[in-house]
């Protein structure tokens, strides 16, 4: 029995099957709960996976090694993000001026505020590196983290929390500042809240959704090109 247990834990098939099952279960539960924006499907799926690992006495390190067969797809899936970006080119060409004025500053500050606060509170460099890409879409953020060094899991956790907080703060501040331009709200959701922000933006309408995707892609590219360079120069 224990041999079977060990051999099952050793095959990538179980890790992949477990991941697919947990993800599908997460999506199903997410729908049942009425698509709550404070609790994305990935988070439910991750909780289910963690519970399964615990029940199976499956070490996270072993799981991670086996599931790499699946997560290998992250590379080509990231490359594929060039396609929607290419399809949005007319928005970029039409509004290059406001985008050029806002995006670099907004994307840089999205990273800077959090890093600065964490640094003032005296957190170690690993934590700072894990917080820096918090507003970048996960596949690109993982690439950035490779360059900075940091904890992948902490970074992804921070990413999810940032996404959820963004949807809350955008609704709140839009009311305060009396902003109802769907392009502005969409853009703010995408720049700060990556994929989770996009989901919220599409609830506001297709214009907000398109601008959110645009904001997310540009923030990802801008941050990926600049952050590792800045990090290297600062010698963190």
């Amino acid at each position: 029995m224990s041999e079977l247990h060990a051999s099952l834990l050793n095959t990538p098939i179980l890790a992949v099957a477990l991941t697919l099952a947990a993800y599908l279960g997460g999506v199903r539960l997410f729908e049942r709960l009425g698509r709550p924006s404070w609790c994305p499907a990935v988070l439910i799926g991750a909780l289910l996976t963690a519970a399964a690992l615990w029940l199976l006495r499956y070490e996270y390190i072993d799981y991670q090694r086996n599931v790499a067969w699946l997560t290998l797809l992250l590379g080509p899936a990231t490359v594929a993000l060039a396609v929607p970006l290419y399809q949005q080119r007319q928005h970029i060409f039409a509004l290059w001026k406001p985008i050029l004025c806002c995006l670099p500053l907004a994307a840089a500050l999205a990273a800077l505020y959090a890093v600065l606060i964490a640094w003032l509170l005296g957190t170690p460099p690993t934590v700072l590196a894990s917080l820096a890409p918090k507003s970048v879409t996960a596949p690109i953020a993982m690439g950035i983290l490779e360059q900075l060094g940091g904890s992948l899991s902490l970074m992804l956790g921070g990413l999810l929390i940032t996404g959820v907080l963004t949807t809350i703060f955008v609704s709140l501040l839009a009311k305060w500042l009396k902003i109802d331009d769907k392009r502005i709200l969409g853009f703010a959701l995408g720049v700060n809240g990556h994929a989770i922000g996009i989901v919220r933006a599409f609830e506001l309408g297709p214009t907000a959704g398109a601008f959110a995707s645009l904001g997310m892609s540009l923030t990802g590219i801008f941050t990926a090109m600049l952050l590792p360079l800045v990090w290297r120069l600062l010698g963190v």
Binding site: L95, K97, P98, C101, C102, L105, A106, L109, A110, Y113, A114, V115, L116, I117, A118, L121, G122, T123, V127, L131, K134, S135, L154, G158, I161, T162, L165, T166, F169, V170, L173, A174, L177, I179, D181, R183, I184, L185, F187, A188, V191, N192
Partner: peptide, 27 residues
């Protein structure tokens, strides 16, 4: 505590900045 503070306050400030910037520059 530091991580959560950085995430909450940092995200609040960056959302606020983006909205103000966009309102200023969007035609």
């Amino acid at each position: 505590t530091a991580i959560m503070l950085a995430l909450v306050v940092g995200t609040f400030l960056s959302v606020l900045t983006t909205l103000l910037l966009m309102r200023r520059f969007m035609p």
